[in-house]
Amino acid sequence: SGVNQQQLQQLMDMGFTREHAMEALLNTSTMEQATEYLLTHP
């Protein structure tokens, strides 16, 4: 699906929903950016 499943699982383990985590990974290129994205786009 174009996203790193390991990163997706890590974000879900942090408490984010699958949909939200996927959106973040699709819009960013690193785990750090994805986390930042999730925190700034709740």
Rank of each mutant, 00 (worst) to 15 (best):
S1Q: 14
S1G: 12
S1E: 13
S1A: 14
G2V: 14
V3M: 07
N4G: 06
N4H: 08
Q5E: 13
Q6S: 12
Q6K: 12
Q7Y: 15
L8V: 07
L8Y: 03
L8R: 01
L8N: 00
Q9I: 10
Q9T: 10
Q9A: 11
Q9M: 10
Q9N: 10
Q10P: 03
Q10G: 05
Q10D: 07
L11K: 00
L11W: 01
L11C: 02
L11N: 00
M12T: 06
M12R: 04
M12K: 03
D13E: 10
D13R: 08
D13H: 08
D13A: 12
M14Y: 07
G15R: 01
G15D: 03
F16P: 01
F16G: 03
F16L: 01
T17S: 14
T17Y: 08
T17M: 11
R18K: 12
R18Y: 10
R18D: 04
R18V: 07
R18C: 10
E19G: 10
H20P: 04
H20I: 14
H20D: 09
M22K: 07
M22H: 07
M22D: 02
M22W: 10
E23L: 08
E23P: 01
A24M: 01
A24Q: 00
L25M: 06
L26T: 08
L26V: 09
L26A: 09
N27P: 01
N27L: 09
N27W: 06
T28M: 03
T28K: 03
T28C: 09
S29C: 13
S29I: 06
S29D: 14
S29Q: 11
S29A: 11
T30S: 13
T30R: 02
M31I: 13
M31D: 02
M31E: 02
E32L: 06
E32H: 04
E32I: 05
Q33H: 05
A34T: 02
A34E: 02
A34D: 02
T35I: 15
T35M: 15
E36D: 11
Y37V: 12
Y37G: 08
L38D: 03
L39S: 14
L39W: 09
T40K: 09
P42M: 15
